[in-house]
Simulated scan of single mutants.
Amino acid sequence: MINTETLTHREVRALVGLAEMRAMQTDVLADYLQIGRSEVYRLARRLLDADLIHPLMEMQAGTKWVVPKPGTSAWALGWRTADWRPSPMWAEHYRAVAQTRVALEACASQQWMSERIMRHEAPGRGPYPYDGRLMRPDWQCVAVKVDTTRYLTPEEFSHRLHAIRDQARRDQCAELLYVCGGYIRPETAVATARRILRYESDLGFATVDLDSLITRRSSPKRSGDGRVFPLRHRATGGAH
């Protein structure tokens, strides 16, 4: 049992965020907590001394990973979890998802439902079609897909959008945000979405380049009048 009385509020926030995202690299965790890089290493040392995280892990290039122990994740999430470790296959993707969450300013648990939680709550097995569910200030939710795939054929990309659309509708999402961090570019995502989602009711679509989102150089691509790319329709038909 974890003794929360010995933890600071920031340490609790760090442990919950790490469990939700499986792990984070030190630079991303620093941005998540809005603290400096030196402070995040001091925080990690305190958590390590308390036996709540594994020793910091290196995975290819980049900063080290802060990985919670299974018991820590179980305490934060409410169910038993696997002893997850970053791998060469998934490290880049999970970094991009965590960076996206921070860039969208959705660090609080009530603002973001992680793929780990969605997969646990969904029936059946297999990966969830998208990577996070963002709660907007108006309490409408947004399905967020962070794409770091190195190559996708047009057919594969169309199949992916179909799967995301279907799950987003089941999840009663108002919008789909496609974050382009791999082979697919925002222009391609928009063109494919026009074809696949053109008959959808009450489902918005927006896309943004991952690097631009992280550096705050741009907002998700929207139609000329400032609205989300016009895939949302009134119940009686017609864009609005």
Score class of each variant (00 low, 15 high):
185 R>H: 03
157 F>L: 10
167 Q>W: 07
160 R>L: 15
123 P>H: 01
131 D>R: 07
119 R>S: 09
153 T>Q: 06
148 T>L: 06
102 V>G: 00
167 Q>F: 01
200 E>D: 15
138 D>G: 02
179 V>M: 09
101 R>L: 14
105 E>H: 11
182 G>A: 05
129 P>R: 04
118 M>D: 07
136 R>M: 15
185 R>A: 01
180 C>N: 03
139 W>E: 13
149 T>G: 02
166 D>M: 00
196 I>P: 04
123 P>S: 08
122 A>W: 05
190 V>T: 09
156 E>A: 14
181 G>F: 11
140 Q>H: 07
144 V>Q: 06
100 T>R: 13
140 Q>I: 11
202 D>L: 14
186 P>E: 02
147 D>I: 00
102 V>W: 00
199 Y>N: 14
166 D>F: 02
171 D>N: 11
142 V>G: 03
121 E>D: 11
179 V>G: 00
168 A>V: 05
197 L>G: 01
120 H>F: 09
189 A>G: 06
196 I>F: 02
132 G>K: 14
158 S>D: 04
119 R>K: 15
169 R>V: 14
144 V>N: 05
185 R>W: 01
182 G>E: 06
142 V>E: 03
172 Q>E: 07
186 P>K: 00
102 V>R: 09
189 A>N: 01
195 R>Q: 13
101 R>S: 00
182 G>F: 06
100 T>D: 09
155 E>M: 12
175 E>Y: 01
166 D>C: 02
184 I>W: 01
204 G>H: 13
128 Y>E: 03
170 R>S: 10
194 R>S: 13
186 P>C: 01
148 T>Y: 07
184 I>S: 04
154 P>F: 02
185 R>D: 05
204 G>R: 15
156 E>C: 04
123 P>Q: 00
113 M>D: 12
160 R>Y: 03
162 H>M: 10
196 I>C: 01
181 G>C: 12
181 G>R: 10
162 H>G: 00
119 R>G: 05
195 R>M: 11
177 L>I: 13
192 T>R: 14
118 M>K: 10
123 P>G: 04
195 R>D: 02
129 P>T: 03
135 M>E: 10
153 T>Y: 01
164 I>L: 05
192 T>Q: 15
177 L>S: 08
146 V>S: 01
122 A>K: 05
128 Y>W: 13
120 H>K: 15
202 D>N: 14
182 G>N: 04
152 L>P: 06
181 G>H: 11
173 C>T: 10
188 T>G: 05
193 A>W: 03
136 R>D: 09
129 P>I: 08
150 R>T: 09
153 T>H: 06
134 L>S: 13
175 E>C: 14
199 Y>C: 10
111 Q>N: 13
103 A>S: 07
162 H>E: 10
183 Y>F: 12
174 A>M: 11
163 A>V: 10
116 R>F: 03
200 E>P: 03
119 R>N: 07
126 G>C: 08
159 H>I: 11
201 S>Y: 13
102 V>S: 05
151 Y>D: 02
163 A>Y: 03
136 R>T: 09
130 Y>P: 07
144 V>T: 11
163 A>H: 08
106 A>F: 01
174 A>S: 15
174 A>N: 11
122 A>P: 01
174 A>Q: 12
186 P>G: 07
126 G>F: 04
146 V>D: 02
139 W>T: 12
184 I>M: 02
191 A>K: 14
137 P>W: 08
156 E>M: 10
129 P>C: 04
170 R>Y: 07
